[in-house]
Amino acid sequence: MLVTVVIGSGIAAEQLSPGNTGLQLLQNSTATVLGLAVLILVFGPASGAHFNPVVTTVDWWFGRRTGGLPLPHVGLYAIAQILGAIAGAVLANLMYDLAAVDISGHDRATAPVLLAEVVATAGLIVLIFALARTGRASLSAAAVGAYIGAAYWFTSSTSFANPAVTIGRIFSDTFAGIAPASVAPFIAAQIVGALIGAALVVALYPDVEAAAENVVVPHEETTFAEIKTAV
């Protein structure tokens, strides 16, 4: 749904404001801010609103000694995140009567843009884990939405800051798309940004490990055994 919001609003912006890139970006960013906040509220209690593989990985790293997210779950989350992102792109295309899969030709991987992705991802990591550590994870929906909305404008990359979303955006040759050749550099920049962000979090909050279970939103974990019993 996150990728559907990002791509769908991008397609709408292209159709409603042809030739006006600034207005298109405003429309796209506004929908993304609101959609992301709502999705965090909806899915947070179930999964923690882990929409982002680098956030999930950093969360595992911080909580690995305190009973946080198990490493096998990181892989399962990443699979779900990537498949969900691809499905979201297909859904957005179909809603606008486009080809279900249309590989993007939008090359983005220039040095300034990759630097922007490092900055965007580092800032996102710092925000999420600072909120968790200071007992304000309940504000994540508003705060993360606001940060991504701002980063649409202050970064030259328009703040993808998410490897799964980056992969999903390959599949729509529209305003929000990204060419396959740009994906690996983008993800590399996001990983670097996540490492920098994690280092900053540790510097600011040395005991951040204690808050790992509250990222992005505190939630109840359902085990596979519980699922099997329920079925």
Rank of each mutant, 00 (worst) to 15 (best):
S138Q: 13
S140G: 15
T166Q: 03
A132W: 00
A130K: 00
F154K: 07
F160W: 13
F154Y: 15
G149A: 08
P163A: 11
A150H: 07
F160R: 13
G135P: 02
T134S: 13
F129N: 01
F129Q: 02
T134P: 03
R136W: 06
A132P: 02
A146K: 06
R136E: 06
G135L: 00
I148C: 09
S157T: 09
P163W: 00
A161M: 14
F129W: 03
A164F: 10
T158E: 15
I148Y: 06
T155L: 10
A141F: 04
S140H: 05
F129C: 01
A161K: 07
S159I: 09
I167Y: 03
T134E: 05
W153M: 11
T155V: 11
A137L: 01
Y147L: 15
L127P: 00
T166Y: 00
F160T: 15
I148S: 09
W153Y: 14
T166R: 00
L139E: 04
L131N: 04
A142D: 06
A146E: 07
A141D: 11
Y147M: 14
A142W: 05
A141H: 08
W153Q: 13
A130Y: 00
F154D: 10
G135E: 03
S157Q: 14
L139Q: 06
A132S: 03
N162G: 10
G135T: 00
S138D: 14
A132V: 01
A137N: 02
S140D: 10
P163R: 06
G135D: 04
T166C: 03
L127T: 04
A151F: 00
G135Y: 01
T158H: 15
I167Q: 07
F154W: 14
T166A: 13
V144E: 12
A137V: 02
S156Y: 14
S156F: 12
